[in-house]
Design a protein around this nucleic acid. Structure first.
Lengths: 124, 124
DNA sequence: GCATAATAGTTAACATGTAAAGTATAAGGA
DNA sequence: TCCTTATACTTTACATGTTAACTATTATGC
């Protein structure tokens, strides 16, 4: 993810915020636990990140009406604009990776990682 | 690597020190840049870790005679003893992973990751 | 219903990662 | 030889990850 980090460092955003933005954009308003899982973050990290993102106007939050323990995060227009601004470059980086590494291998790798992550190695 | 971390947390050692110990054990006395590469650490991290390991008597250091910029790290008997003490459990964890995930898949995954890491995505 | 447990997040304290600048030594070229 | 560049770390400062303890709210068993 080095190239992605490099791309984002030009802007006023980092890798974690980028992942959160993309999750919120793809899945719509979501509770924080889900966002954390999708963005591969622990909740304490997400707490920190999303507070910053609120301050920067990239996302908003509201407590869920049905279950007041839950907090629902939503991407703002500014957040969406940031995604649009970087999407072309992001795609180019990904295309480059596909070309250098091989599309099949890349898919294989991602599948294996996904599968490994769903394995629960703790239970016996 | 969760299970490995769990195993080590019982003891007075952590994941990074474990990796450094294993590198030093497998490759013998080595300069720090090599150790960092093999243990997937940046040099500043290694500096911190190896100082602690010296204090705990797990490794020693000496400046290279031929090139006085280099620092050569060596595992001690205490370090080797720590490896021995945890090796059986480490092997069991790995065997468990092989069983749950599949040996072939695991090898495939490690190969792909290795290959990806050698790719230089920054150059042209 | 009420006590207990479970869930969703937050906070705080500490460990670790990372980038940038600094030091010391070595190598190369005019 | 002297100046410049490169290498091998170290130090510093800050970002991020991680664990444990905490609050608030909801679900469950009796």
């Amino acid at each position: 993810m080095g190239p992605i980090r490099e791309m984002l460092s030009q802007s006023d955003i980092n890798e974690q915020k980028w992942r959160v933005l993309r999750v919120l954009d793809e899945r719509g308003p979501s509770e924080l636990t889900l966002v954390a899982k999708e963005a591969c973050l622990l909740l304490p990290s997400l707490t920190r990140i999303i507070r910053a993102m609120e301050d920067e106007g990239l996302a908003t939050r509201a407590t869920d009406a049905g279950d007041r323990r839950k907090s629902i995060a939503t991407i703002t227009e500014a957040g969406r604009a940031l995604i649009v601004a970087h999407m072309a470059e992001s795609n180019a980086i990904f295309a480059r990776l596909e070309q250098d590494f091989g599309r099949e291998k890349l898919e294989q790798l991602l599948d294996l990682l996904d599968e490994l992550q769903t394995l629960d190695l703790y239970k016996p």
